[in-house]
Nucleic acid binder design. Structure first.
Lengths: 110, 110
DNA sequence: AATATATGTCGTATGTTTGCGTCATAAAAC
DNA sequence: GTTTTATGACGCAAACATACGACATATATT
C-alpha cells in the first residue's frame, strides 16, 4: 500500500532515517548512549521507561539503521553510538534543509 | 499504546518533527514548494505520484506541523514554505546531533 | 551438571499511518 | 441559477508500528 518506490532515492533514504528518529524512546537511547559512551543493554533497559523487550526492539532498529553498534561481551552486549554514521546523517538533514531554504524567490509573499 | 508521555519534551518534539519528515511524499512536497516558491494545491497533486486526496492529507500534516502555509485565493489554495519554521526545525536537528556527538569519551573503543 | 543471568526472537493485541473513493462546500464561469 | 472547478472532510481497508509476555539460547556461576 505504501508507495515509497515512486519517489527519489534521496527522498526515500531521508524518510527512512527520519522514521528511525521518530520515536522518543529511540532518541532517548541515543542521548543515553552519548552520555555513557558505552554501556550494556541492561543499563539501557533500566534507563528507558519501557519493558526490556521493547527496548531491545528499539535497539535493533537503531542498529539496523547503523546509528549504533553492539558488541557481545560474554553474556552481555555493549552498545555505543556510531559517531561517523551519525555525523553523516546529520549532514544529510543539513543538506536537505539547506537545499529547500536556498531557493529564495521574492515572488512569494504569503 | 504509544507511551510518549514518558519521555522529555525535547524528545517528544523532535520525534514529532521526525515523523512529519518520515514520508517521501512529504519531503517531495517540500522540495517542490522550494522550487516553485508558491503554487496552488492542484499543481502539487499533479507533481506527486499519489491521488489528489492523499496529497491533500500530506499537505495538511505539513501545515499542521507549521512547515508550510496555505492561503485561500478564490477556489484555489496557494501553498508555500514557512522558511522561518523550517530554519528553526533545522536548528533543532542540528542541536540534537551536536549534543550527542560532543560527548567524546576515549573509554569507548568499539 | 544445575542454576542463574543477559539477551534476542516470536506471537499477538492494540494503535497508527497510508491511500483512496465518495461526498460536501464554496467560489468562478456560464 | 446551474454547472464547473478546486479543495477539504469522512469513512474505510490494508499495511505498519508499538508494547509486551512467553520462550529460546548461550554464557557465567555454583
Amino acid at each position: 500500500m505504501r508507495k515509497t518506490e515512486q519517489f527519489t532515492l534521496q527522498e526515500q533514504e531521508l524518510a527512512v532515517l527520519s522514521r528511525v528518529l521518530s520515536h522518543p524512546a529511540r532518541l532517548a537511547i541515543l542521548k543515553f548512549l552519548a552520555e555513557t559512551e558505552c554501556c550494556i543493554s541492561g543499563d539501557i533497559s533500566n534507563e528507558i521507561p519501557l519493558s526490556r523487550t521493547t527496548v531491545s526492539q528499539h535497539l535493533s532498529e537503531l542498529k539496523y539503521a547503523g546509528l549504533i553498534k553492539g558488541e557481545i561481551e560474554g553474556v552481555k552486549v555493549n552498545y555505543c553510538l556510531d559517531h561517523a554514521k551519525i555525523r553523516a546523517v546529520s549532514e544529510q538533514f543539513n543538506e536537505f534543509f539547506s537545499s529547500i531554504l536556498n531557493h529564495k524567490n521574492p515572488s512569494c509573499n504569503l
